[in-house]
């Protein structure tokens, strides 16, 4: 590995922004309130867009500018705006979630970062790209996103975790292969957009049926459940208001 001073200014900037993106993952892991959580996600999007634009400049792959613009539009403005609006409409913006062992969670996140460096080793060794030092960071963002989804109980936090996994994957593609082919990136962006809208629909359905957005409450379906629980496919089941 080369020392930092040998890298060009742009390459150093890429590493700094990547580190900040990883930091925002940790913020998401520990942030208990809904609105700051959404803002942390938006900031991660800003950093990703910046890194992508820098990589585009350094590597001379102009199609990465389109990816950067797409990230900016989708991950920084549209999706955070959608989530923000939903939080306001559902009046959950002031709610805070209790995290059981916050310090343990953050330590686990640190462990995942080390693990990512281990996974990334064979890729980094074979890569000749200027950005290869940040591949491990992208894997760490994916893994920490999963940790968010496992550790957090609020549906909003799970959605943010889901979207940050997607951020990590996008980042991995940018730094390891200078982005996916444009048609694939457009397709993925479309899927992410549809997913974000569907999540919004789900929030309302969950609120209607469970009166809460705590995923903990979703315990009706399991193998341990015995048949006495009411589970009829008959017309007597509440069909919910047709909207």
């Amino acid at each position: 590995m080369t020392s930092l001073a040998q890298l060009s200014l742009f390459e150093q900037a890429i590493i700094v922004f990547a580190a900040l993106a990883l930091f925002s993952s940790f913020v998401m892991l520990a942030q208990t309130r809904v609105l700051p959580l959404i803002y942390a996600f938006a900031w991660q999007g800003v950093l990703l867009a910046l890194v992508t634009a820098l990589v585009a400049y350094v590597s001379g792959h102009p199609h990465l500018y389109i990816s950067a613009a797409l990230t900016l539009a989708l991950k920084v403005f549209l999706i955070p705006w959608l989530l923000h609006r939903l939080a306001m409409q559902l009046r959950i913006h002031l709610e805070a979630e209790r995290i059981v062992h916050p310090s343990l969670l953050l330590l686990a996140g640190g462990g995942l970062v080390i693990f990512s460096y281990y996974i990334a080793l064979p890729i980094v060794q074979r890569s000749g790209l200027a950005t290869r030092n940040t591949i491990a960071v992208s894997i760490a963002i994916v893994l920490i996103g999963m940790l968010v989804m496992i550790a957090r109980k609020k549906a909003v936090a799970q959605v943010v975790g889901f979207m940050s996994i997607e951020n990590g994957l996008f980042f991995a593609a940018v730094v390891s292969t200078y982005g996916m082919p444009l048609i694939v990136e457009l397709g993925v962006a479309f899927d992410v957009l549809v997913a974000a809208i569907l999540f919004g629909v789900f929030f309302f359905h969950m609120r209607e049926s469970f009166d809460t957005l705590d995923v903990d409450q979703l315990t009706r379906l399991s193998e341990a459940r015995e048949p006495e629980a009411p589970h009829e496919a008959s017309g007597a089941a509440p069909a919910g208001p047709a909207r």
């Binding site: 049926s209 009706r220 509440p238």
Partner: peptide, 12 residues
């Protein structure tokens, strides 16, 4: 069907 079970299943 918008039953609680079906919403849980879909979320999962």
């Amino acid at each position: 069907y918008r039953t609680p079970e079906s919403i849980e299943a879909a979320w999962k």
